[in-house]
Simulated scan of single mutants.
Amino acid sequence: MTSDGVVTTGGCGGERPLRRDAERNRQRILLAAAEVFTQRGLDATLDDVARQAGVGVGTVYRRFPDKESLVAELFADRIDAMVAVAEQALAAPDPWQALVSYLEYAAETMASSIGLRQLMMFATYGRDRVAYAREQMRPVVTKLVERAQEAGVLREDFSATDVPLIAYMLGAAAEYASYVEPEVWRRYLTLIIDGLRPSRDGVSELPVPALTPQEMEQSMRAHGQPGQARR
């Protein structure tokens, strides 16, 4: 048995699964890290994660030797999910709805996690994983765009590279207004979607009202105070 609670087999040189309590600690750390990095971004430390998980920082380091390894594991499934959703959208029969549904998913994913947005935009951690995800997503998203354009439902000057930038932009809007209206990004997604059509007879109903002048002032004041601007 190793000092960190891993039971090793005697003659085969392999390792049995983590002891039950060690695995519980690992899952507790991942859940805590998801909350900390989602709300505070990648500037949060392993000490912050340990406090949130209610374990000693040494326990965190035994499971994850550094922050990069924790971040990479934490967001690996989310990145894979973005690729999978893009592939599922490509199989949808309606080219327009396929593109719109993926745009909404990508925007909601970025809006819900500061850490994931930082990871995908800057690749400070998990560079190989992020680069792989981008390489996997690029051809699928390109096909979504081209299929909608070939069907005549998407303006011809729209590019596949516009998709992630729209998602990042809406994520930033969600962060900016999180103190007063975290769902306001849906309003701007609807405005953007209306602008993607080559032509239209009317405009879509906006799902979220505009911020009031008072809410705008609250957002401006709270945005410079990270502890209050995110909830």
Score class of each variant (00 low, 15 high):
L116V: 05
L116G: 02
I114F: 01
A167M: 02
Q118R: 05
A133E: 03
P139T: 08
A98F: 11
G115D: 01
R134W: 05
A148R: 07
V140E: 03
A151Y: 12
A89V: 10
L90D: 11
D128Y: 08
Q88E: 15
A92Q: 15
A111M: 04
L90A: 14
V130Q: 04
L154E: 03
S113G: 00
Y125R: 05
D128F: 10
R127T: 10
A107P: 09
I166M: 15
T142N: 05
D128I: 07
V145I: 08
L119A: 01
M121P: 00
R155I: 02
I166Q: 06
V140R: 02
A123G: 09
P164G: 12
Y102H: 13
Y105P: 03
T109L: 09
R134P: 00
F158R: 06
E150P: 00
S101N: 12
T124I: 00
F158K: 00
A167V: 03
L103R: 10
T142D: 08
A133N: 08
F122R: 13
A111Q: 01
P95W: 10
T109P: 08
A98G: 15
S112K: 09
G152N: 07
M137Y: 02
A111D: 04
P93F: 10
A107T: 08
Y102C: 05
T124E: 12
E104G: 05
A111Y: 06
S112N: 12
V145L: 01
M120R: 05
S113L: 03
V100W: 01
V141L: 06
T124R: 13
V145W: 02
G115Y: 03
R134F: 07
V153S: 02
Y102T: 10
W96P: 04
A91V: 03
L99W: 05
A98P: 15
R155A: 12
Q149G: 00
L116E: 01
S113Y: 01
A92L: 15
P95G: 07
D157I: 07
F122D: 09
